[in-house]
Design a binder for these strands. Structure first.
Length: 295
DNA sequence: TGTTGTTTACCACTCC
DNA sequence: GGAGTGGTAAACAACA
């Protein structure tokens, strides 16, 4: 059996469901929302299997977007002309997958059902959409404030933030990869320090956010020649380090930065809002990043 | 006209 | 066997 995460999906069907693939695509974008066409591009860029029979799988994917409550549709604003809406992950869908694995869902995410501790209160799609949009605005504002700082633009938006503390959502690319590579000693590369959401997500993902699980001081190394879940060398793909938070999180100052500048914005991509042009899919490699121990 | 989004239906598979 | 999940097909409407 090919081991998920290795460079084995060149033209085979990946072991991920459409929900997983869509979640990956959305999570790879700093805004955490993508139009349908960009989701298509993301999947085709990374999985050659999906460069064929596009009508079939794209229909299935659209079906999943509409059918599953874990995806929320965010309408374009009047100043964002274009076809279709943006799609985002519902902020509460984090524990949808069994042990965080993309290979199988624990349960179908249902708005209004029993959820993890909810930072948003009652779980309504419109609330989630509003929340995401507010967060995007917040990020954009903060980015403008931090415009004088050096920034690194990455392809699909997983920025190369070097700040050591960054929240990781189970849907984040790095988590997918990390899960697929067992870290010796159970070490996970996700520091606990930082965002309040850690406390809220802990009960949902104790294996990731629980006390004592994460070690912020542990160095993360990566051997040359290792490959990501997308069949690309991680070292090449992830020149810098970590990513933006996978879901919108409260802005928190980072050590060494002015207090008003959140850590993840110090090197954030230029596009932090759907109003900005989307990152080019021509550079999908940067969607991955390297805070993964691969041994 | 092509794309996007919704809905319904069916089947296969896995888990309990 | 039933429930849940995933994949596929198809029809239809709305929209750029």
């Amino acid at each position: 059996m090919p081991r998920p995460g290795r460079n084995t999906y060149s033209d085979q069907k990946p072991p991920y469901s459409y929900i997983s693939l869509t979640a990956m695509a959305i999570q790879s974008c700093p805004e955490k929302m993508l139009p349908l066409s960009e989701i298509y591009k993301f999947i085709m860029d990374r999985f050659p299997y999906y460069r064929e029979n596009t009508q079939r799988w794209q229909n299935s994917l659209r079906h999943n977007l509409s059918f599953n409550d874990c995806f929320i549709k965010i309408p374009r604003r009047p100043d964002q002309p274009g076809k279709g809406s943006f799609w985002a992950l519902h902020p509460n869908c984090g524990d949808m997958f069994e042990n965080g694995s993309f290979l199988r869902r624990r349960k179908r995410f249902k708005v209004g059902g029993v959820q993890v501790t909810d930072p948003l209160g009652p779980s309504k799609p419109q609330d989630a959409a509003h929340y995401l949009q507010q967060q995007a605005k917040l990020r954009l504002s903060a980015l403008h404030a931090a415009a004088h700082l050096p920034q690194v633009q990455t392809g699909y938006g997983l920025s190369t933030v070097t700040q050591p503390s960054s929240f990781k959502h189970p849907f984040a690319i790095e988590n997918i990869i990390a899960r697929e590579y067992k870290v010796p000693g159970g070490l996970t590369p996700f520091p606990t320090a930082g965002y309040p959401l850690h406390n809220q997500l802990g009960p949902a993902w104790p294996h990731m956010y629980g006390p004592g699980v994460m070690d912020p001081a542990a160095p993360i190394s990566m051997a040359a020649g290792d490959y990501s879940a997308y069949g690309m060398p991680l070292k090449t793909l992830c020149p810098g380090g970590q990513t933006l938070p996978a879901i919108p999180v409260p802005i928190k100052p980072a050590p060494g930065l002015p207090a008003h500048i959140p850590a993840f914005l110090a090197h954030s991509p230029r596009s932090l809002s759907p109003t900005s042009p989307q990152s080019s899919p021509a550079a999908p490699a940067e969607a991955l990043q390297s805070t993964v121990a691969v041994h």
